[in-house]
């Protein structure tokens, strides 16, 4: 029956719509939006240079966006547990419920980011500047990081019945990818300095979406001084354009993989 096949994405969209409404009205969405709004205005008007503002923003975004997405994802999942059970009892496919909720969370966070940073940049006269593409890339990467870390957070919550444990694992995951990973990476570069490390550092960067995002933005900005070792290897290995495409592709893979596991896991889980 074609109607039956149509019902599946339709139901997902309905669940997405209401999750999104619910979240957009939450106080935390406003706080998140206001934070970026303030950050954008302060950075632009304190630093008269838009490219410097973009770099500072990048440094904040690649750490803060994953943290907020992780916490929001975990909190949303556990808070809506009973409501999810009500939805599970409706004639709706499980994957439409979880995909809908996931896209509602990731979508509302992405919108807060885009509007929060977009408004100050527009006020400053973004369109007169050549930095518009750098800025757009910053928002795209912010969107990807939101999607990736919300999906990872949903995965962790789905696998842990215990709220405290789930929350703990999620924060640890963020801490590992945002802070500890770089530390280990640097230490291993120093320890193994006598060996050729090109392939190692390429792989290490690919395996961490935060590092990958940083490299992607720096490749676009083309600031050799800031590229660091990995960036330089990337640039040397792929050239700026291919490096950009490869890292973007890997970022997409980082988004698709946790979403697929989310769908698989939700199909098999007992609630």
């Amino acid at each position: 029956m074609p109607l039956r096949q149509l019902q599946y994405p339709l139901n997902m969209f309905k669940i997405l719509k209401y999750s999104f409404f619910d979240l957009m009205r939450s106080r935390w969405s406003y706080v998140y939006f206001m934070f970026y709004l303030l950050l954008g205005f302060v950075l632009l008007f304190l630093n008269n240079d838009i490219s410097k503002a973009v770099i500072t923003l990048m440094n904040i975004i690649i750490v803060l966006v994953p943290l907020i997405a992780t916490i929001f994802g975990v909190m949303y999942y556990y808070n809506s547990k009973e409501f999810t059970e009500l939805l599970l009892a409706q004639p709706v496919k499980r994957t439409s419920i979880f995909l809908g909720q996931y896209l509602g969370v990731a979508g509302s966070l992405t919108l807060s980011l885009i509007f929060g940073l977009g408004i100050p940049f527009l006020c400053y006269g973004l369109f007169r500047s050549m930095v518009i593409w750098d800025f757009a890339l910053l928002l795209v990467v912010g969107g990807f990081l939101t999607m990736i870390f919300t999906a990872l957070a949903f995965n962790i919550s789905l696998s842990n019945e215990n709220k405290i444990k789930g929350f703990g694992y999620a924060v640890l995951m963020w801490l590992f990818l945002a802070v500890i990973y770089d530390g280990i990476f640097l230490v291993s570069l120093i320890v193994f300095e006598e060996y050729p490390l090109d392939n190692f550092s390429l792989a290490a960067t690919m395996l961490n979406p935060i590092d990958l995002s940083r490299t992607l933005i720096l490749l676009k900005l083309d600031i050799s001084a800031l590229l660091g070792y990995t960036g330089a290897v990337f640039k040397q290995f792929f050239g700026t354009n291919l490096g950009f495409l490869v890292s973007l592709g890997t970022l997409i893979l980082w988004t698709v993989l946790p979403i697929s596991r989310l769908m698989l896991k939700s199909k098999r889980k007992d609630f």
Partner: peptide, 18 residues
């Protein structure tokens, strides 16, 4: 088949901002 069932869950907890 869940079209055939009306379910009343034990805990009434709904999205707070709706």
């Amino acid at each position: 088949y869940r079209k055939e069932i009306n379910y009343l869950p034990q805990i009434a907890n709904f999205p707070g901002n709706l």
